[in-house]
Design a protein around this nucleic acid. Structure first.
Lengths: 348, 348
DNA sequence: TTGAAAGCGGTACCAT
DNA sequence: ATGGTACCGCTTTCAA
């Protein structure tokens, strides 16, 4: 049988109000406080978080909404983006004695776009299960979020800039950095660039590649070819053929989405006996620290600060929950490139 | 302002008892039920999980204790073991509309062993935050667990066989399978085998290698050399030298702990211009599906069913929580080896 | 089938 | 500084 505050009160010879005060750092005479603490120890008493929550007290749980892409074989816990972000969140959260409630939200594919499941994540607020929420997902089309920020407890959205949102937002400018990558390759002499991307990723990185490429082509006066961005989800088992095709038609550089794709492509290039960067250049995105460079130490990569995004969002949330002043409701983080030896300089 | 059961009762023109009955599938006249549901919809009412929990009702949250190894740079969300297991858990849990509360437990290093932090994970039960618990950790020395199984809600322990525990246990026989690996290499003609392992992993796989190797040596009449098991945590930056050393002293096969170590060693062997398996044989452990074979398609691996362990443990927990009959309190799962082309047959 | 009321384990206000 | 008590939102028993 579990002990209640009344048991403690009896054991300590005080009223339950006093015990409550001790528990909540109210003003209590030191001796009384000691008595109560002794009783708590003796009885091995722990306050019931549920009962506390009833009065609107924090339960020290924050929710993280993690998108699950329906139909994708690889699951949430295999996405480097999500994992790095969770890492960052955990780093902050666990120091503050908060715990993480993972809320999985199914993303349904709808043509080329995603649609959030009707699963209503806001119910976790309504049910009072969480004190705050971090959302890692495509949510630009999510109207609920708009209302939620007024109605409920704090919500931090991680991903792209959420226009007209007005809530807390940690973001990276995906289109911009994608363009920077294209420009970098261009400056090294590459014009026939093929991206292999993954639109079914949880964030918008892949999606923004299209706009970036379009702008890039326009600015550099290159003919825009839609097939120069390949969505792995659309490829069945013919990646090999597609790569071969692209190489034959003059592609000099591959821009790869993540470690999974990079590994796949590197294996294929190896089978083809193509050398990087002598035969073809390669540039990749690292979503989780050095997940690519650990395997291929010579590949030039762009590092997306997912870990930092997680960290910043958790910090922000903690600040809000603990009534510390918040400077910026929106924080922009920037990817950075690490040049290694996988991009060949092509003389023009 | 959030709505309460009383608001619904008023709107529906019934008493709050009736609303409660509707919510909990008590017997209510169909028309009344309809009225109440309509009111619930209209008001956008959600029962407060806290208030429910107060009466001992399930809150549909299960906890997962995840060990964090203190001082290790790589974090929880980078351990393939933990991730695969979480994947399995998530797979089951989310179908049943439960969510996961992650509880991070710091593991302190104490000489060669680990010691659990004084962080008391049982408080999550005492505080009524969770309905059940899955523990992924080294806990063989944990006495609290012993009491906990009687005192609290269901706990499933994943890892090794937990002797004299009496609780729910999903396990793999680590020593046995380690020995099978050694025997396999022996049958292919290898006797000078070096393991590169990681004792600071969250589970006992690495630790059991020592016993396995000892037994193996005894049975096969090989001189047991402690330095033939190398703990990466003890190596500073001289892995390269150590590998070179071992190769020079006649080592014909490396038995590698996980994908991180495998990647590291493969890179070093590449630098040394040593070919696998011509110059040296390699066998690795996959903790997360094909995390190694995706990168090195020719490496022979042993697959530890972490995903399945997660799945089984979650199933078990769900069965218990939902009062379904439970057949086995202990479930043994078995790793399996996939032979590829990284082990050379040595003629004697 | 339904309603009234007690109680779950706390918090917080009002007295003393 | 401490105690008494109303109340948080819900479940459950008892009576009607």
């Amino acid at each position: 049988m579990s002990k209640s505050i009344i048991d403690v009160a009896k054991a300590a010879g005080v009223s339950k109000s006093t015990v409550s005060r001790v528990l909540n750092n109210g003003s209590v005479k030191p001796e009384t406080r000691d008595k109560v603490f002794r009783a708590i120890k003796e009885l091995d008493y722990y306050p019931n978080a549920m009962a506390r929550g009833l009065k609107g007290k924090s339960n020290h749980i924050i929710g993280v909404i993690i998108p699950k892409v329906a139909g994708k074989t690889s699951s949430v816990f295999e996405s480097k983006q999500a994992l790095s972000t969770l890492n960052g969140i955990e780093e902050i959260i666990s120091k503050q004695d908060y715990s993480l409630l993972l809320i999985f939200d199914l993303l349904l594919t709808k043509g080329n776009e995603f649609k959030n499941n009707d699963h209503d994540y806001l119910k976790y607020f309504r049910e009072n299960k969480i004190d705050g929420l971090i959302i890692l997902a495509k949510r630009n089309e999510d109207n609920n979020l708009q209302n939620a920020i007024n109605e409920y407890k704090p919500i931090v959205y991680i991903g792209e800039r959420f226009k007209d949102y007005g809530g807390y937002n940690i973001y990276v400018h995906y289109k911009k950095f994608n363009k920077q990558v294209y420009n970098y390759l261009y400056d090294e002499g590459h014009t026939n660039i093929v991206s292999i991307t993954d639109r079914s990723t949880i964030w918008e990185v892949g999606v923004r590649k299209y706009d970036a490429y379009k702008e890039f082509c326009k600015e550099k006066n290159i003919i825009y070819e839609e097939e120069n961005i390949i969505d792995v989800n659309k490829l069945a088992n013919n990646i090999y053929d597609v790569i071969e095709d692209k190489l034959e038609s003059g592609c000099t550089a591959f821009y790869l989405e993540d470690s999974y794709i990079t590994i796949k492509i590197m294996n294929i290039l190896y089978e083809m006996n193509k050398k990087v960067p002598d035969d073809v250049s390669v540039i990749s995105i690292e979503h989780g620290g050095n997940d690519i460079s650990a395997i291929y130490p010579f590949i030039t990569t762009v590092n997306i600060p997912n870990y930092e995004m997680g960290k910043e969002s958790a910090k922000l949330l903690m600040d809000i929950l603990q009534n510390r002043p918040v400077n910026d409701k929106e924080i922009l983080l920037k990817p950075h490139m690490i040049e290694r030896k996988s991009v060949k300089i092509i003389e023009k």
